[in-house]
Design a protein around this nucleic acid. Structure first.
Lengths: 242, 242
DNA sequence: GCAAAAGTGTTGTGTCTACACCCATGT
DNA sequence: ACATGGGTGTAGACACAACACTTTTGC
């Protein structure tokens, strides 16, 4: 076991030509806050294996496309991809037993859609609360939970909230989004102060009129950037001398 | 574009059978602190493409093995895999142009080895400081830097330091390891207090005799766990009422 | 005693939590 | 006036950074 391996050197490429190759699919955990709950977009399988179980949208990788292009193409069959506010790679699953009868790798992505948009979806497709998932096909259950964990972590140390929120919103609305995604109560007061101090949010100056029950009109805010930025890079072990 | 796609449903599997498939390699960014610097294990390509350039160890995925098993198998040709203290998946690269003349996907792993061990490596293989990398083949440059960033981030909010450190060590030794990995000075005093308060480190009770220059003997410490644990889960947005 | 290295005491600062209180609107 | 919801003031807890100082050794 001491001969150097040579990925993609000519001799290896030659052997790769005759080599058995896996199929490769891309999958997406598409999350959106709907009805105050974090929900995932799933479609129901009609055929074996896992007939009747729900599955993540996705499909086979095609030549000349990247993984990201692939998942965007497959998602286009389920939702209007332009409504996705964020897309990032999660992980690649490779258990040879993950799909019966086929050696299939799967690269999962996390997609996020802002609250409010309600894309048309096909007959077999529906949103499901992530904390009450139905029976999922293959390894799609753990993948979905990994997507939620990624979202929760990044809400804490990045500006990823922009991907769940509309362009303009009140702090109370944003608090509800964070609470739905994080799975616990979030303080309006502190959320506002943390995000404004970090300069993640900025006031638009506009106000929203109160409802029929009255109340002080709420100020409107927006995210300063709608690109992912790390806002709290190091929890500890900061470089000295700031 | 509204027909539901069906990954791995029978009809899709049938079409998958005749479908063009990519090759798939696994790569590893193996990092170790050597000579006070963070270094990566690379081998020098003898043949085109990228003859003379340096590359990450790895090779083709074989049927019935997982990605992790694959990278462990290929690494065994370079180093004693039992000396790896940590291995985790980084990302999967899919640019169709990333390897000339071949449609090849690559799943990269991050591997870490504790300071002090010095595995025998083949002729064509050597360690290179990550902050002064030679010309790297393919997309191995950005992959290597992504590995370093993953390490730096996790040193801050997990106990991943265990993977760089020997079983027992003084705080001064650990400080040098963190400084090499993070790329900036680290305070001995504060490193000790942070890691002990978080109960990441524990004193062994033993002491290390000072060198010929004298000095107070140093206490020895160990990591309480040598499995990855998140020790500072949420930088902000903690759940209420702790 | 003196130099060297390790470790602790202490103070300051920045960030977040909690909660009280004030503000602006509808009825 | 009062209810309703929005926003601010302020105090406290906590964790970390910085630095002075003490401890323990070799020479």
């Amino acid at each position: 076991m001491r001969e150097p391996t040579s990925p993609s050197a000519p001799e290896a490429r030659a052997s790769a030509a005759g080599r058995e190759r896996p199929t490769h699919v891309t999958l997406a955990v598409v999350l959106q806050v709907r009805g105050g709950r974090l929900q995932a977009l799933l479609w129901q399988r009609a055929r074996e294996p896992y007939a009747g179980a729900w599955a993540l949208p996705g499909g086979y990788l095609e030549p000349t496309e990247t993984l990201e292009a692939s998942i965007r193409r497959h998602l286009a069959a389920k939702v209007d991809v332009r409504e996705l506010s964020h897309l990032e790679q999660l992980e690649t699953r490779s258990d040879p037993e993950r799909v019966p009868g086929e050696w299939q790798l799967a690269t999962a992505y996390l997609g996020l859609a802002p609250v409010g948009v309600d894309p048309a979806v096909p007959e077999d497709t529906a949103w499901h609360p992530v904390d009450r998932l139905p029976r999922l096909a293959f390894d799609h259950g753990p993948i979905t939970l990994a997507g939620r964990e990624r979202l929760r972590a990044k809400l804490s140390y990045t500006n990823l909230g922009f991907a769940l929120a509309p362009d303009e919103f009140t702090i109370a609305q944003l608090r509800d989004l964070y609470a739905a995604a994080m799975g616990h109560h979030v303080s309006t007061t502190n959320l506002q102060r943390v995000l404004v101090r970090r300069r993640v949010l900025e006031a638009t100056g506009a106000r929203r009129d109160p409802g029929p029950a009255g109340g002080r009109p709420a100020g409107l805010f927006r995210f300063r950037s709608r690109e992912l930025e790390v806002t709290d890079p190091f929890a500890v072990l900061r470089p000295p001398g700031r």
